[in-house]
């Protein structure tokens, strides 16, 4: 399941929810956290904005794909919207499987696809007073399945 949340993500409750199936032997979780710098600029806070209907639909598609591609029992993902302070969790992904490898792979698949496919945007507010919407035009132009192996946040 994929959800957007305007309030803080409860990572421990999310992680607990993953292990309910007695067949589970491994849980992998990823938390993307707001850091205080990006591309050499000091960041004070972030704002996430979503095209809600399509973001939820695409997020759910990605989770469904992970469930089909990997031998996992449960996949969950939540993403924040609104204003976030440094240290807050912006995105959380969890995967549970009988064996660890599938759980690692499913978790990585969901965060990688989310970053290039789900219509969510991030505005960085800098300590010097400026603010900018973060653009990775390179990824977008390349399309969701041919993006280069580079990382621009988290």
């Amino acid at each position: 399941m994929f959800r957007l949340r305007p309030e803080r993500l409860d990572c421990s409750a999310l992680a607990q929810g993953l292990g309910g199936d007695p067949r589970v032997g491994g849980c992998v979780t990823f938390a993307g956290v707001v850091r205080n710098h990006n591309n050499g600029r000091a960041v004070e806070r972030l704002e996430y904005e979503a095209y809600e209907v399509l973001a939820v639909a695409e997020g759910r598609r990605i989770v469904e794909e992970a469930l089909e591609k990997f031998d996992v029992l449960c996949v969950e993902c939540e993403h924040r919207v609104g204003l976030l302070e440094i240290g807050e969790t912006a995105v959380w992904v969890g995967a549970a499987a009988a064996h660890r490898r599938a759980a690692f792979e499913a978790c990585q698949y969901v965060i990688d696809e989310l970053k290039v496919r789900v219509p969510i945007w991030k505005k960085e507010y800098y300590t010097d007073g400026g603010a900018e919407w973060v653009l990775c035009a390179h990824c977008s132009a390349a399309g969701p399945h041919s993006h280069p192996e580079h990382v621009h946040s988290a």
Binding site: L54, H79, K115, V116, P119, I120, W121, S140
Partner: peptide
Amino acid sequence: FAKWETPLSPGDSVVYIPPVAGG
């Protein structure tokens, strides 16, 4: 999501999606 050459119909709702930056 739609193709750029999809014919538009009256009352359609269109959203242009700039490069995304979730996560």
